[in-house]
Design a protein around this nucleic acid. Structure first.
Lengths: 340, 340
DNA sequence: TTGTAGGCGTTATCAA
DNA sequence: TTGATAACGCCTACAA
């Protein structure tokens, strides 16, 4: 079974391909009679335009490319879900790629997407991406680009993010208000903006509350396995600062849960001996014992917004309207549970 | 910046498009000199064939379509990861769609993929899919199809699955061997093969161990929210069978964790008062308290295998080799933790 | 060894 | 109102 083509419709109807095409696209210069004839037959035969041919002709692929650092990740899979829903509604397909937190992969994938003629690109950057020429390349090709979550501040494209700094500030302020005084921070890599901003929020909250910032209380979790990172950071903290710490603000729920595991394993009570605060609100954090207080990071919403903005830019581009990049900051909120 | 075309290369080199094309594809009837000339310039200009043009010409899109019931799901996101890795290695792109467990969506998406000219399709069926004409349609179009995890037994295409029945049998047998005697089952919908097979495995294990099968101990979890389903099934079980039950085999980790939450909330001790066994080995089940015993379901491997089989079939098809559908059954294993 | 020409399916221009 | 015709970019059989 082969797809039906314009030619076939034209032949069975004794019309020219041109007329059939115009009839289907409802051009004014085709007789009503023929329009009906063509449309009826097209529907009956289940005619659908060949996308490659359309693309070749119109330079539009009705396809967008998405690159995320990881897929097996509650936050990112939520984002993807949001993207798919918006894209599908507007008749766009989504080509998905995962960079595995590797800049090299990300770069390669950008090339693949450009070569594939995608209409637009959505990216959340890999941890170690700090050269942005591949992003510039996308824009040089005139392909709309929207970054989300892990963005590059210096790249002049639309962005959808949360205010990591404020969210971290709020979380740590909450801990302080609750009476915690010696608050450690399990941070991420030094490079990603996220990691930096959350750290800065943490620090600011301490300063604003007249608590001395002590850099020996900041642990870097930058291996591949967040859970293990959290576990071993907790272990190190336990060894080096035994009883002087009363709370930890973690860059991620999984890091926090790794730490929680360590404390549970060693009969250190959370939150009595030490309080824990996560970030992201993975489903998992609600079912762990004790359940984890965390920052709600609206992944699904972020996906929807990113896709929406990208598609708007595509639309504007086709209409010849010049676009100024947008920056959307999504609201976060504290989810207080039993770990603090 | 526009992509470079054959024509441009031909013009700057004073050759014909045909010669350039042949040089790039390393045809024997092009002079070595011109081959070098062409290839050098192509590399310098970063020439990449326009995929739509190639597709139009060759009828190959180097793209496969993937439909899953849900993305925000540890198992499926692992599968997707596996698919992406294999596809990428072979130069295929992946268009991802999610059916949201809806047959209607699934059907629509199949049409979209067919119309999009994908080379092959990978599907895990929605819960309520029990009409398979859309799958037949894919095959009628000569598009290779591989089903994974949620499959249709009667559709004659390749499949990658686990032996749900055996896995369930093993899990329940383990519980019995451990001394549990009154074992309830929180099953899924009546329709999906998975759900049926796990139920049958459960039942068979009881029978083989001379434990009477009591259908009042089987609860159906078929709402949208597995966690809530597990919670409320546990509640119902608690009310109707108070102390007579000593273990529950759940169709899914999340259902089990929902139940666990209920028991924790009501000071019913797991596993002392009641044991719990899950299915899938989500990461979450290892961090819950008590940690959950479960069946390891190799999602990543399933993704890789499915993609591999599909791509092999594509290859065979292009070579004109007739393919007989394959059926791969992946090994599962019991992961024993602290809930039983 | 090179180039011409036809065609993949569609759209758009321009004559008829 | 309709239909030739060219073009999008590429591939390939065939002619030169």
């Amino acid at each position: 079974m082969k797809p039906v083509t314009l030619k076939q419709i034209a032949e069975t109807l004794g019309l020219s391909v041109a007329t059939v095409s115009k009839a289907l696209r409802n051009y004014p210069d085709v007789s009503e009679k023929n329009k009906r004839l063509v449309n009826d037959l097209a529907k009956a035969l289940n005619y659908v335009p060949n996308p490659s041919a359309v693309n070749l002709r119109t330079q539009k692929s009705k396809t967008i490319g998405v690159i995320v650092p990881a897929i097996v990740h509650h936050f990112f899979s939520s984002v993807i879900k949001g993207i798919l829903e918006v894209a599908e509604k507007e008749g766009y397909m989504v080509i998905l790629m995962q960079s595995n937190e590797s800049y090299e992969m990300e770069k390669k994938q950008v090339d693949l997407l450009i070569n594939k003629n995608v209409d637009g690109v959505l990216i959340s950057l890999a941890k170690n991406t700090n050269d942005f020429s591949h992003l510039k390349k996308i824009m040089d090709y005139g392909i709309p680009l929207t970054l989300f979550d892990k963005i590059a501040k210096t790249v002049d494209c639309s962005k959808v993010i949360i205010d990591d700094r404020k969210a971290a500030y709020d979380a740590v302020s909450y801990l302080i208000k609750k009476g915690y005084k010696r608050i450690a921070h399990f941070r991420g890599d030094l490079n990603p903006q996220n990691s930096i901003d959350r750290f800065l929020g943490y620090k600011q909250a301490l300063i604003d509350n007249n608590i001395e910032y002590d850099k020996s209380l900041v642990f870097i979790c930058n291996n591949d396995d967040d859970f293990e990172d959290g576990y071993s950071a907790a272990e190190e903290l336990d060894k080096t600062h035994r009883k002087s710490i009363d709370a930890i603000f973690c860059i991620t729920d999984v890091v926090a849960i790794g730490a929680l595991k360590y404390f549970n394993d060693h009969k250190i009570s959370v939150p009595k001996d030490i309080a824990l605060f996560g970030f992201s609100n993975w489903f998992m954090s609600s079912v762990v014992t004790p359940s984890l207080s965390t920052v709600n990071q609206p992944g699904y919403e972020m996906g929807k917004q990113s896709a929406k903005i990208l598609l708007e830019e595509l639309d504007a581009k086709y209409k010849g309207i010049v676009i100024t990049p947008k920056k959307v900051i999504l609201e976060t909120s504290l989810v207080i549970r039993n770990s603090c």
